[in-house]
Nucleic acid binder design. Structure first.
Lengths: 186, 186
DNA sequence: CTGGGCAGAGAACGTGCGTTCTCCGCTGGG
DNA sequence: CCCAGCGGAGAACGCACGTTCTCTGCCCAG
């Protein structure tokens, strides 16, 4: 681990943080464990992130970009604008089926730190706002009324939470079916 | 605090635990704080609950009974079976508007301890299963198809999560409207 | 009145962890 | 070849907290 570029160390730290924080919870993972998993020394870790809370913030921020990127990429594969909306739920199903899926990272973080960390709350709100805005765009692109945004968003959120708690993929299909009904009746 | 009946001490401990755990998170509250808030000595606390995890379990269990009781009581006030289903969402709105509302206690607990405490996970699953079953009963009583259960449940879960994160009551109304549309098209 | 045991207060213990510090080796410029 | 400084390893520090222990006083059976 000789000369390690600052940016590289940052990525490695965030890789380890993401895997551990998401998989086991934030408070359950110590900084030393992140050092061990990432190969980035404690000194360096604290140079990059002056406190654990900021590592958490960076973890959520980077995961947000990637998560929405993966979703958008999947959705782009569909042609029909209405199909694209439903594709969001198809993607949820893929996500729920992934190894190590343990619910929505932001909802979980909110449950864990919502009462004590304003920085975490800000990340969670910003992520959910972005996801909702993305849904709104898909709906607008399909020429559908904006009033569809809220129900589809709530269905997606409900599916994430329920998939996490029950450890099943079913909620994605249930939400998709309900979304299709709502699209019909619009 | 002279002679304190075991059952009374238990209730006082659970009262304090509920207020503190729900309001600030479970890991953020120490046993000593529960002692201070409840007036139940540490010794007694550990007689009643051999470990913190079991106090948490009891907190979730008692809250489940009360939460579903309050919901059912509210819903019983409506005559029409379909109105009763929508009343669930009206009740959610009341709940979201309460002082100190901070999202769904079970979703939050899952986010905080889902990865480390099987007892907590069991409580969360059992609560969500009971809530879903209650919805299913309302739907059956209205002579509506059982396939409505899943979407209404997901809407309610999405509303709880979103109301918690955004600290607004709006999601209850949005979910209600969507539920009404789904009832129409059934 | 007396003594034994229960209960509370709070100290004590052990551990885990966020954060900082110390020490040492390596590297690269003179 | 020499030395200044950066970086890593990991010890150290301080604190918080779950859990247990000790001490003291009170209540009540005899």
């Amino acid at each position: 681990m000789a000369v390690m570029d600052r940016a590289v160390a940052r990525e490695q730290a965030l890789d380890a943080a993401e895997e551990l924080f998401y998989g086991r919870g934030i408070q359950a993972v110590g900084m030393d464990e992140i050092r061990a998993a990432s190969g980035v020394s404690l000194k360096r870790l604290y140079q990059l992130f002056p406190a654990k809370e900021q590592l958490v913030e960076a973890y959520l921020e980077r995961r947000d970009v990637r998560w929405r990127g993966r979703l958008a990429e999947f959705v782009r594969g569909r042609e029909d604008p209405e199909e694209r909306i439903l594709a969001v739920f198809d993607w949820l199903e893929h996500w729920f089926a992934e190894d190590g899926f343990r619910g929505c990272a932001w909802i979980n973080s909110y449950g864990e730190l919502g009462a004590t960390s304003p920085r975490v709350v800000a990340q969670v709100r910003s992520h959910k706002r972005a996801f909702r805005a993305y849904l709104a765009d898909l709906i607008a692109d399909a020429g559908l009324p904006a009033t569809l945004t809220a129900p589809l968003f709530l269905l997606a959120e409900g599916a994430m939470v329920t998939a996490g708690i029950t450890a099943t993929t079913q909620p994605a299909r249930e939400a998709r079916r309900a979304a299709a009904v709502l699209l019909q009746s619009a």
